[in-house]
Amino acid sequence: MDKAVGVVVFPGTNCEHDVVEALVDLGVPHRLIWHRETDLMDLECVIIPGGFAHGDYLRPGAIAKFSPVMKAVSSFATSGRSVLGICNGFQVLTEAKLLEGALQKNAGLSFICDVVECEVASRNSPVTSSLELGEKLRLPINHFEGNYTCAEDDLKRLLDEDRIILRYVDNPNGSIGDIAAICNKDRNIVGMMPHPERAMSDLLGSSSGRKILASLLERSAVLS
């Protein structure tokens, strides 16, 4: 079987089918991973999609981090392969301490669904390697807790190590440093609040997300 992309599904996840549709569009083999699965080693890349894992009860990602699949995601990442958390997936990655910081409630204390402009802040990541530095992307956002925050020394490290990869042009949610996406030190785990899978076609408003997912899949060698 071809090397595939895994799309993690917790109870309450709701963007898994949209991610799959984007992968099908890009011609990439994929499979859905139920949250109780523990073996991901046949995969080249794992995406944790958006939604409300375990109902977001307690806090987004607070219960999901205990799902059996998360230990597997951690080992998978240690092996150097790419992990992308989108929206709720980003929240899960911070709760699981695979990325630093946290996503708190939006500055306006209300849910925001919109299309916003982001700019590429670093090309040195699996999702931006085929984009230009400073390139503007129109990307959908859809979250209540998208306001990225972190300790001062974490922010300094993110800056020093060039790990802020997307910034909002007009900050919609109060995120520190206009941060929309970051990666880990090894640059193989990415968390982003915008939804690239919702931006695959001009008919639906934007095709900017195509470049992001294509970069990720090229880097993971599932798309050449």
């Binding site: 709701n14 949209d18 849910f111 925001i112 859809n142 899978e197 639906l204």
Partner: peptide
């Protein structure tokens, strides 16, 4: 803006 109106990639 408080409602997800994009899910399922149908919204033209």
């Amino acid at each position: 803006r408080q409602y997800d109106h994009q899910l399922f990639l149908n919204t033209i």
